[in-house]
Design a protein around this nucleic acid. Structure first.
Lengths: 179, 179
DNA sequence: TCGCGTATGTTGTCATTGTCAACATCGGCG
DNA sequence: CGCCGATGTTGACAATGACAACATACGCGA
């Protein structure tokens, strides 16, 4: 995305991100190690520093990708769905599904071992995910399917619910139930 | 709690937990360091190992304390409050207030860098917090203030919402608003 | 009262990690 | 074609989590 064209390796940045995600999935965000990522990508332990300022920034990059995927998942879920309310619901389900499919990724995205303020890209990606929700809520309001008012507030409420459910589901406290 | 009576230091375990919480509050759960905790408690870097098997277990102990505090906060908030529904609401508010008052502690409790399965004490404390919620919901149902059904499901829903709100508030995405 | 076992704390050590600095390589631009 | 800078490597260092061996002192039993 941001990197023009890597020289030696072909596309190290992407390869590193890939290894990073896989590693996080295997050992969790805590045991995650920069050097192991480098090892898996088949480069020296310092190569990553040409693409990320430090460990934190690399994690932030993973989170950023996660937000983008999440946004896409929500959009895809609403596509070819009739009814504004139904689309909102589908987006919510997609959200939870994403969380269940990639618990560690989800954790990295929201349990922010990194300070969001210092990672504008991540913050931006997160904002996009949120605005996806907001516009779905606005659609519902336009069609009088939802009481009018600040769309942001409603979206926040929706997000809160969905997020809470997803989180608790991940933690294994939610008995599964089809819907 | 579990420790009978420490010898040399007086009560190292408690002192360590105290330092640990303070440190987490200062630098976050990620930069948290066992050795720094020991330093602050004025003991050698290996003293903590007499009270906690490893770093993870120490964090789990901190989380356990957090669950207990949370439970107490919810109970305290419902005390001398009239109306089952109102009590449920007060508990929810107490939940959010706790999260806002101790964001890092809250983070440690739920973003579990530790695997809950392997820390029965933490799991138990968490369960107690949840059962507090469940009984509040049951009260509402008994008084027909809430549709009947599986109390657990309703409690989960309540928890999800409250938790989601708290989490998003911590992350700074929730515009504050008095209620 | 006294000595000893054991819970508690310390010193020493090791592999691993994040990060910095110096060096090597190679692709494209002039 | 030669140089510069982007990319990657090697080497180093302090800090960390964890283990092992050693020290200390409380409190029980004789």
């Amino acid at each position: 995305m941001t990197s023009p064209k890597p020289y030696h390796h072909g596309n190290l940045r992407a390869a590193l991100l890939h290894s990073a995600m896989q590693l996080i999935r295997e050992v969790g965000p805590t045991a995650f190690t920069l050097r192991e990522v480098a090892r898996r990508a088949g480069v020296s332990h310092n190569a990553p520093y040409r693409h990320f300022r430090n460990k934190e920034e690399m994690i932030a990059a993973v989170a950023t990708e996660g937000y983008q995927e999440l946004t896409e998942a929500m959009i895809a879920a609403t596509r070819e769905q009739a009814g504004a309310l139904n689309r909102l619901k589908q987006a919510g389900l997609a959200y939870v599904r994403f969380a269940l499919r990639r618990p560690e990724h989800f954790t990295v995205m929201f349990d922010a071992p990194f300070s969001e303020h210092q990672h504008p890209n991540a913050a931006l990606a997160a904002k996009q995910a949120f605005s996806t929700l907001v516009s779905l809520v606005e659609d519902c309001q336009k069609k009088k399917l939802l009481a009018s008012g600040d769309p942001g507030s409603y979206a926040l409420l929706a997000w809160s619910m969905v997020h809470g459910i997803a989180k608790l589901a991940i933690t294994g406290r939610l008995p599964y139930r089809s819907t």
